[in-house]
Design a protein around this nucleic acid. Structure first.
Length: 425
RNA sequence: GGAGGGGUGGCCGAGUGGUUGAAGGCGGCGGUCUUGAAAACCGUUAGCCCGCAAGGGCUCGGGGGUUCGAAUCCCUCCCCCUCCGCCA
């Protein structure tokens, strides 16, 4: 969330952010409530002070045995308390309304981010390799995976319904091998600390990273316990340091985590749902950073490169685009998407989003740091990137490394993880 | 799931109704001493909200209640520990 003080001082910038990101948020109502709330608070504080002092006096009077004087004071306190209670009642409701509005205001985009729809204003910033040319007509991943017995789409759907995948044989091993390969790469080459978090989290944690309250319908919810299945490892991993004050010496903190991700994808039926392109449960390796505020933009570039390394090491052609305001998520200030080329499908697929959230998540989750021992705590900046999401990586991998006979060459770095040089029947 | 114990400041730990935002210790910071360091000694050391400021208010796991007054009493929820049961 944004700093309420910032919103007071820059309502124009906030309204503009809502507009260009296409998020409805009632800034004017928030500001009106804020004004009333501050007034009420001042009066309430005054009354509390009076009651506090009077109570202390009563204590003294009682000790001296001056009962009558004490009773008189009590009567006075009762009057103040009555007023205080009525103010507090209104205040509680107002505060709740304010918090709710505040949590629904999106982060402010960085100046470099272009305002407008994605198709027009996304901006390519980097490109690696070229679309691979074949001497034969390349198949798409569904044909390849079914031909080699890597995935059983039909039986997967039998288990979880459409959008749930059953990997079989080498397909299952490919999944596991890719996870291990990517985690090892980030740990060994990029100095990440590996963590393995819960896949189900509380409401509070979902609010910390910005999924709640706005996006409840996108997630699987265990109502009995009010627990939520994570849509990305970003959620538990960013919240590791919730309500903590870190030391500047600890920063940057870099975590890598494998988790499955669960997404209801309500309302997106019929769109891009063939094979592995859009599924309800998928595996992902995620990288998360906590940084000093002044280092976060530089860190975003590093983070993006770290994600790109995965694709490059596997010999996949991709392009990196900076998303326009309408493509970015609610909490992000700047996002790069990595889009990998899938020659059988003849199109690019998004396999990673690298985002800087500035202090937006840190403020919600109350993650702070101190520059020196006696310094005031400040909010850290949080960033994350997929490093990388599996299903679409598998699409690109199968389609890129396919041979004319329908078998798949395993890229060299992956061979130790699979124990084979090629995927065959 | 059942029984019991417990959650206090960066950490340990005292505190069972009255000026306690909280003793004491450790740690941190500043200083004295020292060629330097250590030791010793002195001082200092929570966060949040409102306010230009002066200042005021809130916070002892969360919420609610009793009371003139609650870290201290009551209710409720959460978390941790021990034992029993169940179980991968």
């Amino acid at each position: 969330m944004l700093d309420l003080k910032f919103i007071r001082d820059n309502p124009g910038a906030v309204r503009r952010a809502c507009q260009v990101k296409r998020h409805e948020a009632d800034v004017d109502r928030l500001l009106a409530l804020d004004r009333e709330w501050r007034e009420a608070t001042a009066r309430a504080d005054e009354l509390r002070g009076k009651i506090k002092r009077a109570s202390q006096e009563i204590g003294g009077l009682m000790k001296q045995g001056q009962r009558d004087a004490a009773e008189a004071q009590k009567a006075e306190v009762a009057v103040h308390k009555a007023e205080l209670e009525s103010i507090e009642k209104a205040e509680t409701g107002r505060r709740a309304a304010m918090d709710d509005l505040l949590l629904r205001i999106p982060n402010i985009p960085h100046e470099l981010v272009k305002a407008g729809p994605e198709e027009e204003f996304n901006e390519e910033v980097h490109r690696f390799g070229e679309p691979k040319q074949f001497a034969f007509e390349p198949k798409d991943h569904v044909a390849l995976a079914e031909g080699l017995g890597l995935i059983d789409f039909k039986r997967g759907a039998r288990l979880g319904g459409s959008g749930f995948i059953l990997y079989t044989g080498l397909g299952a091993r490919l999944e596991r091998g890719l996870i291990n390969y990517m985690i090892d790469l980030h740990v060994q080459r990029h100095s990440y600390t590996e963590v393995s978090p819960p896949f189900v989290v509380t409401r509070q944690v979902m609010t910390g990273t910005g999924q709640l309250p706005k996006f409840a319908e996108d997630m699987y919810h265990v109502t009995e316990d009010d627990l939520w299945l994570i849509p990305t490892a970003e959620v538990p991993v960013t919240n590791i340091h919730r309500d903590e004050i870190l030391s500047a010496d600890d920063l940057p903190i870099k975590y890598v985590a494998y988790t499955p991700c669960f997404r209801r994808e309500a309302g997106s039926y019929g769109k891009e749902v063939r094979g592995l392109t859009r599924v309800h449960q998928f595996d992902k390796v995620e990288i998360v950073n906590f940084t000093l505020p002044e280092k976060s933009w530089e860190q975003l570039d590093t983070l993006r490169r770290e994600a790109e390394t995965v694709l490059e090491s596997l010999g996949l052609h991709y392009r990196t685009v900076r998303l326009s305001t309408e493509g970015m998520t609610f909490a992000s200030a700047m996002t790069y998407d990595l889009e990998v080329w899938a020659p059988g499908s003849k199109r690019y697929y998004e396999v990673s989003s690298a985002s800087c959230f500035t202090d937006f998540q840190a403020r919600r989750a109350n993650i702070r740091f101190r520059r020196q021992a006696e310094a005031k705590p400040e909010f850290v900046h949080t960033l994350n990137a997929s490093g990388v999401a599996l299903p679409r990586l598998v699409i690109a991998l199968l389609e890129t490394w396919q041979r004319a006979d329908g078998t798949i060459e395993v890229p060299a770095p992956l061979r130790p993880y699979l124990g084979v040089d090629s995927l065959t029947r």
